[in-house]
Simulated scan of single mutants.
Amino acid sequence: MYPLTTYHLHQIFDELDRNKDGLVSVEELMSLLDRLGLQAKRAELELLVGDKALNFFDFIFFYQTLNRIIVQENTCEIKEHRAEEEDLRKAFGVFDLNGDGFISGEELRIALGRLGLWDDEKRCGNDCMQMIGVYDTNSDGLLDFEEFKEMMSGDSLESS
């Protein structure tokens, strides 16, 4: 998403300034946020605005401030997503014992046994294949990383 130009901001300002007094009031901003489906408390908006209304130059500053906040929040979300993805890749590596990019029933059985999560080897082999089968979307008998992510999130079970 690209930042708005001064021309576009002026058009938005003029549209928001319903009473054409050269100011955009907190009420007019609240109306905009409501139309966008965004929730804001009046007190919070007044704190951001600093006054009861914004002239055009204050409106530009207000927009730039909101834009910076949104960019920072998006950057934080991207970093969190990358960290989660990295954690999942490490967990995947615990189960992908031969490093081929797939988890077989045998690898799952061995890894669960090493982690002390399963003792009955005979039953575990069948159960491990059934576990893989639930998330094995391409029916190759193996879990790739994307299928493993689904398994860890539990999405396939919820939609079944």
Score class of each variant (00 low, 15 high):
129 M>L: 13
97 L>Q: 03
160 S>V: 15
97 L>M: 12
84 E>S: 08
45 L>P: 01
19 N>Y: 00
50 G>R: 05
106 E>Q: 06
51 D>K: 06
48 L>F: 09
148 F>A: 12
5 T>M: 14
17 D>H: 07
82 R>C: 11
67 N>V: 08
16 L>V: 11
57 F>H: 09
101 G>V: 06
104 S>C: 07
41 K>H: 11
36 L>R: 10
137 T>C: 05
69 I>S: 00
55 N>R: 03
102 F>N: 03
100 D>I: 02
69 I>H: 02
35 R>D: 10
49 V>S: 00
148 F>E: 01
112 L>K: 07
2 Y>G: 13
17 D>Q: 05
7 Y>E: 15
127 D>Q: 11
122 K>T: 13
110 I>N: 00
88 L>W: 02
127 D>Y: 02
119 D>W: 03
53 A>N: 11
114 R>F: 08
113 G>V: 01
39 Q>L: 07
151 M>N: 08
134 V>H: 03
39 Q>V: 10
130 Q>L: 13
148 F>H: 03
104 S>V: 04
14 D>N: 09
94 V>W: 03
100 D>F: 13
146 E>R: 14
156 S>W: 06
126 N>Y: 05
9 L>A: 05
147 E>A: 02
37 G>K: 11
80 E>R: 11
17 D>K: 12
24 V>Q: 02
44 E>A: 09
57 F>M: 11
84 E>H: 07
89 R>L: 13
147 E>W: 10
131 M>N: 07
159 S>M: 12
140 D>T: 04
138 N>V: 02
